[in-house]
Write a protein that binds this DNA or RNA. Structure first.
Lengths: 140, 140
DNA sequence: GATTGACCTTCCAGTCACTGGAGGCCCTAA
DNA sequence: TTAGGGCCTCCAGTGACTGGAAGGTCAATC
């Protein structure tokens, strides 16, 4: 099938599929006219990639998962390990966002939010808050 | 002061400061030898940027906040609005991560994680799960 | 005065995962 | 024959840096 059909079926943009070919995630044959010709197996890979990407796996993780997918002898433990490290990563991100949210909420709550120029948010950003600067603002 | 000192004081990498100059977030003078010469005002901006970035504001948001910071007549409502839209954004991200986490946890829990090749995680990625494919995997 | 080494400069390329666009070929239908 | 849509490649841009090469500057030491 042509790339357009593969795109519809896999729900991946055409551009993305071409990109995936570029980086070797899928290797469709070529028709005589130079068009990519996707087999059912290729389509399976694309669907796999779509799902895995939407679950937050990076391209390199997808590559790894794909090779496990296609290795009939893989140990499920290997796949589970990748998945669990992904879960930990998500947990870390959630924590980080939560603490960010907390600071922003505190600042926002302290701000009267009217037409006056006085603004605790700006004051904080400018370093005019309590002098515990070194406790905060560490970039992850 | 030289860029190294500005870097220490602002806790921003030297490279980042040069980048910020490139994109016009800070405009230090130059000494006769061509070295950047940061004033106290420049340093204030850098510290402001460090704090704002660490709170998750994008570069463009920082630019906006900086101009509000330097506008003595700004309305605090403007700053509060940016902050609150940031909070909503964080909430959206957290929700997304939570639902991702849920799917991954379900999959991981279903996987025995031993040396056998049978793996529900891979099966799901391959589209061998329940046939509700169209309900899932929408990329945000 | 020469050398060392830290610090500074610019410029280019790479990161991640695409996305947009230009310029042009191919195919089908009217 | 023409119009349109689909396909091709290649290049550049996104965001926010980061790494590295090649080279100039400065202060201290020999």
């Amino acid at each position: 099938m042509n790339i357009g059909t593969a795109s519809e079926q896999s729900r991946l943009p055409v551009k993305t599929i071409r990109y995936y070919e570029d980086i070797g995630l899928v290797r469709p044959l070529r028709s005589e006219n130079g068009y990519r010709d996707f087999s059912d197996t290729d389509l399976q890979r694309l669907k796999f990639l779509q799902r895995a990407r939407s679950l937050g796996f990076s391209i390199e993780e997808c590559r790894e998962l794909l090779s496990l997918y296609e290795d009939g002898n893989r140990a499920s433990a290997d796949v589970k390990a990748i998945t669990q490290s992904k879960i930990s990563e998500i947990d870390r991100k959630i924590d980080e966002l939560r603490s960010l949210r907390k600071v922003l909420t505190t600042l926002s709550d302290a701000c009267h939010g009217d037409s006056r120029p006085t603004c605790p948010i700006i004051d904080d950003l400018a370093g005019l808050g309590e002098p515990d600067r070194d406790m905060r603002g560490q970039t992850g």
